[in-house]
Nucleic acid binder design. Sequence first.
DNA 1: GTCCAGGAGCCAT
DNA 2: ATGGCTCATGGA
Length: 334
Amino acid sequence: MPVETCVDPGAPAAGVATLRHTWPVREYDLAATLESGQVFRWTPEDGGWEGIVAGHWVRLTATPHTLTAETCVPQTDWNWLARWLRLGDDLGAIVATFPPDPPLQEAVSACRGLRLLRQDPWECLASFILSSTKRIPHIRRIVGTLCTRFGRPVPVPPGRAPGFAFPPPARLAGATEAELRACGMGFRAPYLRAAAQAVATGVLRLETLPELPLATARQRLMALPGVGRKIADCVLLFAAGFDAAFPVDVWVLRALRQLYFPRRRLPPRRLRAFTETHFGPYAGYAQQYLFHYMRVRLGRNARSDPAGPTGRSGGGPAAGTPAGFCPQVGQFSR
DNA sequence: GTCCAGGAGCCAT
DNA sequence: ATGGCTCATGGA
């Protein structure tokens, strides 16, 4: 679906550089999108959100029906940002492809307007290599330190903290493991360095991933040390255009066990088979709704495991599976 | 102190 | 194929 641009009534003619641009949007929850664990470099500021995209400082503000971007370097073309924001997505059409099961419908209702972004593949790969067994605030700090120490300074408006681009592969490939560890990333340092070297030397060509079949693209990523199924799927979904990729982390695993199979003990293999057949062509979008729903609505209550020795989960308002719901089990009973 | 985090690699069954 | 154990680090 083509991305609409320049429909702001007061927008200048094409070719004129501006510092601000407004798009009309429907159902775009900017805060939920930027806080849902896809990206790690955005901070709320003065009622908007500020971050760095493609080496540009960007401030985003939202109203119920518009999204406005500001930069501090005049832009003649805003399509790079529209693409990053995935403004061309028809969210209603995407949600319409979801299976009508109660858990997913509840998650969609609770997180209306949550979107996926289309990130730079290298930043995404590097960030998720740093994400393993880390909480999101800590990932944000490690990535921030990495950018401060290795990234190119970028122009920011007066009064703002200094901004830095995400460091390119060649820059990190040339860093020592000790320098990387000093950013707080621990045992992930050699993984990040190896990935930077693979991309910088052309052994791994991230720009070609979108042209490959999903399984092939996944194999290329998983060839890197420190990159397994989950991190590979994050890159495929968040940066390479594979909307069917379905990263399974501890939260999504919890969602699957508690919301879909509350009184069974399915091994991860069976659960993965379920995710590959149940959620449809936008499975990755569905995954993002389940992930965010588990985090913001259930929070701490989600940690008890109904299938484990602790018994029933705690009494959050939406903590229970709708009574009597049983997903189609025939398709994976073999 | 103990547990856990948007995991993955290694080794023993 | 599957189940433990370990790898840093910091916050609750």
